[in-house]
Amino acid sequence: MRLTARSLRFVILALFAVFFVVPMIWLFLAPTKSDGALVTSNPFAFGSFHHIAQAWDHIDAYSSHLYRRWISNSLLYAGSATAIVLATAVPAGYGLAFGTFRGRKLVLTVTLIVMIMPASALVLPIFLELNSLKLIGNVLSVILPFAFYPFGVYIAYIYYSTTMPRDVLDAARIDGCGEWTTFRHIALPLAKPVIALVLFFSFVADWNNFFLPFAVLAKSTQYPIQVGLSDLLSSTPSFNPAAGGGGQSVNIFRPELALATLLAIVPVLIVFMMSQRALVRGLLGGGVKG
């Protein structure tokens, strides 16, 4: 009886593991095969490395290195926005944790509400606002909204208010440290784990964002990789028969599309694996009260 319950539990857990992992395995194997082999061979058979190189050549040739452009755009948008987030969110979290200024609670509450509200709820309003400012089509209309990251402020706030004893700061002040010196020499060096966490979350959120750049950018040379992928999808004849002729001439088929998808997540996957520990700890420590 007990044994069957235990094995039932294992079977269920394993079935879900299959559901989560199989698409990933398929994605890793797809670029090793030709489009024809994808249809005829076993879905989990390995093709050859030669096909990966070939698929890459096709992607790279697409609209004269447009794919590289998308990746570097994504790096630029996510990188610069995350830099601004770090420069603004860490001090802001500190100021909210130890400040006594008027309006502190208001800033904190609004930050919290905007942070929990789904980001995509604000995309159209942001688009309408940028449109009235004639900023549509400008890369700043992606970077600046990305640079607003209330979750980063909240993480920094929670970190400072739970792990840093007020006495340390008081002692520094008594010893004659100014506000800035106290932050620079005491609070900032202590913030390393928080910086790692904010960096990861902000970078990944920006990297994966589709809706905002899709709405505010006009030219395909400005696209980040996520929007670029949708552009590639439209050129794949198996999903878009209208692109049939185009598909032949640009050589974008399913293996190319799979490789393009895979390469697009590599940066995230690397950061993801590296920060898995800090992440899990942060997810748990972050929201819990007290």
Binding site: P91, G99, R102, V114, I126, E129
Partner: peptide
């Protein structure tokens, strides 16, 4: 104390206003 900590929050405020509240 009515001002303490405010300078640290100032760089973040324009972003909160421009992309959180104003839209």
């Amino acid at each position: 104390s009515a001002w303490r900590g405010l300078p640290f929050v100032l760089p973040y405020l324009p972003f909160l206003i421009l992309f959180g509240i104003l839209p």
